[in-house]
């Protein structure tokens, strides 16, 4: 690293502090049912599988915890023939 790079480097501690604050705010409330995502995944899949044939390996559930808003992203791939049959 050049000496110039050293001086212009951003402080990392504020990032650490903010990441911890967001993370711990969630962990403190969710301790006890920490497998929330897994549980949601199973229940959502059960509902969808009632109507459409799905491949359980092609399902993605993602949780993104933000400071103000958290998002739950469910990505389910529906095979073409199953889709055609349902339609």
């Amino acid at each position: 690293m050049s000496i110039f790079g050293f001086f212009s480097r951003q402080a990392s501690a504020p990032t650490a502090r903010e990441r911890l604050q967001v993370l711990l705010a969630h962990e403190r409330t969710t301790t006890g049912h920490s497998d929330l995502v897994a549980q949601l995944r199973e229940e959502i899949l059960a509902v969808i599988a009632k109507h459409v044939q799905i491949d359980r390996d092609k399902v993605n559930v993602k949780m993104d915890r933000g400071k103000k808003v958290s998002t739950l992203e469910v990505d389910i791939e529906i095979p073409l023939e199953a889709d055609a049959r349902a339609a």
């Binding site: 951003q10 402080a11 990392s12 501690a13 650490a16 502090r17 911890l20 711990l24």
Partner: peptide, 16 residues
């Protein structure tokens, strides 16, 4: 290192 912003400060850890 804390003063340079490369390490969490005492107050940061205490607050968290």
């Amino acid at each position: 290192r804390a003063e340079r912003g490369d390490m969490l400060k005492v107050d940061d850890v205490l607050e968290i």
